[in-house]
């Protein structure tokens, strides 16, 4: 038995038929070919499958594809604007905050969400917001520094990467 799913991912509309058990993360990867969202643990620990669903940042292994019917989804690939990196991505690169890059989907989206919720987050708050993502390469400090470097830049709207009044 297959179910229709109509979903907007990174601004593009998709219609697919999926099995009821298909997870959102598998839907993105296997049905839409968006491989920027990774599978790291299968048990909702590592955060490599973070996406934004109707404005909420969540682990795509905790949602069924059918639950995303009618939703707006943003994945790591969707953060590029006209081929330019999102400020969070640029900041992470500048701080050498990723090396193997497998955790990028989790780290970038968790960092972005942290900044959107609390634009001037302190060290502890940033670390707390990264609690749900694993990075095995960098010891987290460069990630924290990257987020905090953006927190220091006050007039930047991180939702779309454009400069705006806060």
């Amino acid at each position: 038995m297959k179910y229709p799913v109509a979903v907007s991912v990174n601004g593009r509309a998709y219609r697919r038929e999926v099995e009821a058990r298909t997870l959102l993360v598998d839907f993105l990867r296997d049905h839409l070919g968006l491989f920027g969202t990774h599978v790291g643990c299968e048990t909702s620990q590592c955060g490599a499958c973070l996406v934004t669903l109707d404005g909420l940042t969540l682990k795509a292994c905790t949602r069924l594809a059918v639950q995303a019917d009618g939703a707006q989804v943003t994945t790591l690939e969707g953060l590029l604007v006209d081929g330019n990196l999102h400020p969070v991505q640029s900041a992470l690169l500048k701080e050498c905050a990723l090396t193997c890059g497998f955790c990028a989907s989790g780290v970038v989206l968790a960092a972005k969400e942290c900044l959107e919720r609390k634009p001037v987050a302190g060290e502890d708050e940033v670390r707390r917001s990264l609690e749900g993502v694993f990075c095995r390469c960098t010891g987290y400090q460069p990630i924290v520094d990257a987020v905090r470097s953006l927190a220091a830049a006050p007039v930047r709207d991180l939702r779309d990467g454009a400069t705006a009044e806060l």
Partner: peptide
């Protein structure tokens, strides 16, 4: 001067190609 990772932009924008991404 560290210019960051050559492979960085690819990885940070979800364009890396890992073994599970091969289809």
């Amino acid at each position: 001067e560290s210019t960051g990772l050559e492979e960085g932009p690819r990885l940070v924008s979800g364009c890396g190609l890992f073994i599970a991404d091969l289809r």
